[in-house]
Amino acid sequence: MNPPLLQVKHLRIEFPTRRGILVAVDDISFDIAAGEVLGVVGESGAGKSLTGAAVIGLLEPPGRIAGGEIIFNGKRIDNLPFEEIRKIRGREIGAIFQDPLTSLNPLYTIGRQITETIETHLALTHAQARARAIELLNEVGIPAADKRIDHYPHQFSGGMRQRVVISLALAANPKLIIADEPTTALDVSIQAQIITLLKKLGREHGTAVMLVTHDMGVIAETADRVAVMYAGRIAEIGPVADVIHHPQHPYTIGLMGAIPNVGDNNERLAQIDGSMPRLTAIPSGCAFNPRCTRTADVPNQRCTTERPGLMPAGATRAACWLHAKQYVKQNEALPV
């Protein structure tokens, strides 16, 4: 079996402040295979966007990678000098951000921006680059691409702009795309269009996608696997159908119950009481333990003293002591 395209090992992201060091992402590991779509889902402050930014070398200071490794295509990239990571960025790893308006330069035509990206990374003449740009715009579903290529970003609607950003990310045919909340700023009907497009392009180009979002619906439609993040840690990771239908971590279970569903007739939604801890006050042991209803099922108050690593749980892996081998037998009433 081939090594995965992207490996993140024990990644730790810190923010030094005058009140001490805040750990925004704490020892997370995952990998993405070529052509795979990995969803990273979590609530605001869970560290999902920072993880994406770290992979692509766009972590904003004072944030810094304080530990772990990021290995892309067999090569360690987290400690590369700025110039080197800049070459990889765009050429081998593309990026799509939430707000299409700020990802495009308002002063240049979209054609210029796409051809520039192509010429920077691929050995093509200007005419060839332009032809490829038109081809890309066609591919992302922009009508009359040969005319629209000379338009400025403000002449496009929100959905069309996001398509332009996607074509920009695809310009150099990267192996991996980091998509950070690509549909959040869009209307529902446009969201559906963009999700369908992302899925189609990923499949056709064999591009792997790291899809960072808070929207479980988007993940369900797009991703192959999903990592659920909580307070800077991965709570659960596994195939998307298993995580959604048979979540194993109490947080994932709560999260899935909290999502309203058309056609469900339940009067109340399942509710996780409390709120995610601030980075300044992450509880010891399992970060979820103050909100968890199952801590009593684990002996010796282990949830509050010792941090659980990811362990096999059902068809997924969950960071929860309930799934530790020595307790599984005692806890017959595990969620199915």
Binding site: A258, P260, A270, M276
Partner: peptide, 8 residues
């Protein structure tokens, strides 16, 4: 709001 807070 986040989904879990939305539910609350």
């Amino acid at each position: 709001l986040d989904v879990s807070v939305q539910a609350q």
